[in-house]
Amino acid sequence: MSTVNLKVKVWRGAEQGEFVEYLVPRNSNQTVLDVVTYIQRKLDPTLSYRFACRVGMCGSCAMTVNGVARWTCRTHVAKIVEGDSLEIAPLNNLPVIKDLATDMREFFNKWKGAVGFFKGEQTRHDDFAVVKPDSEERQLANAGIECIGCAVCYASCDVVASRTNYLGPAALNRAWTLTNDVRDTQQLDRLRAVAGDAGCHTCHTHGSCTERCPKQLEPTAGISGLKKLVARAAVRGTKWGKL
């Protein structure tokens, strides 16, 4: 049985480094995560990379494959291989710790910075909050809440690359879903957090986030919603106050 080998270039190092080529036996039904795992287990145990569930639920295995940010566990080699070559690098726009593992702190700090967390005023002694599932706000929130924080959108965004303080599509998308959470009590703070030159109006709608999201979420939609809301807050004021 002859084995065809994949020529896999993998980023080794940190901010400074190089691509090192490995030869990996090609199989049918092989994912890019399978390839990275093979390299680390059989060829070079010093390779650093992240994964967890390996079934497309956790988002830990996101890397840059042939220049495009993807979940490696959900990317079949057959779909993206160029001839018999693959290029695997860490996610763009995030500092590299080592090899394929990036420092996700700024990604999650921006999530916080956009007030991407819930705060309500009811306690366990109050009755349940009633949110109708077919209400407009609930439907808008539903469209964006499945985000698992994998940073593929963040890694695909030009504006994140060129403007270091830009909050980014994931944080803004989360802020948008919470803007539509009728129980949340921080709306004015949230609008202020997503305004300004690190905020929603800096998005120039090139759409890579929506194009690349592995869960088919649409940060462009949420950011458009925020743009209108923040503009209204600046000019007329909203039900939560004026910017």
Binding site: Q16, A69, A89, P90, N92, D158
Partner: peptide
């Protein structure tokens, strides 16, 4: 830094 950056493939 000489790490790869967003290139034409991402766009």
């Amino acid at each position: 830094s000489n790490r790869p950056t967003l290139d034409h493939r991402a766009k």
